[in-house]
Amino acid sequence: MTTVSISLLREVTEVIRPPRALFVRYPMGYPLGEPNNPALQHRVIAAALSLLKRNDVPVLEEFEA
């Protein structure tokens, strides 16, 4: 099973080292960016899903809004 996670706290993710994570600059509680903004939520999801192809784990990329 391949996993990818959103990260809201870069420093924590750097220490825990999940295989694939997308760091987003959103407040805690807002991993997909904004409520009722499907377009933004889809962009975050697409960026996260693109990391599934990466096998140079741990992967920690930042979402470019």
Binding site: T3, S5, M28, P31
Partner: peptide
């Protein structure tokens, strides 16, 4: 795994 899931998408808050 029993469900034969290929991808888990994790969202912490």
């Amino acid at each position: 795994r029993e469900d034969r899931v290929d991808v888990a998408f994790l969202t912490p808050v």
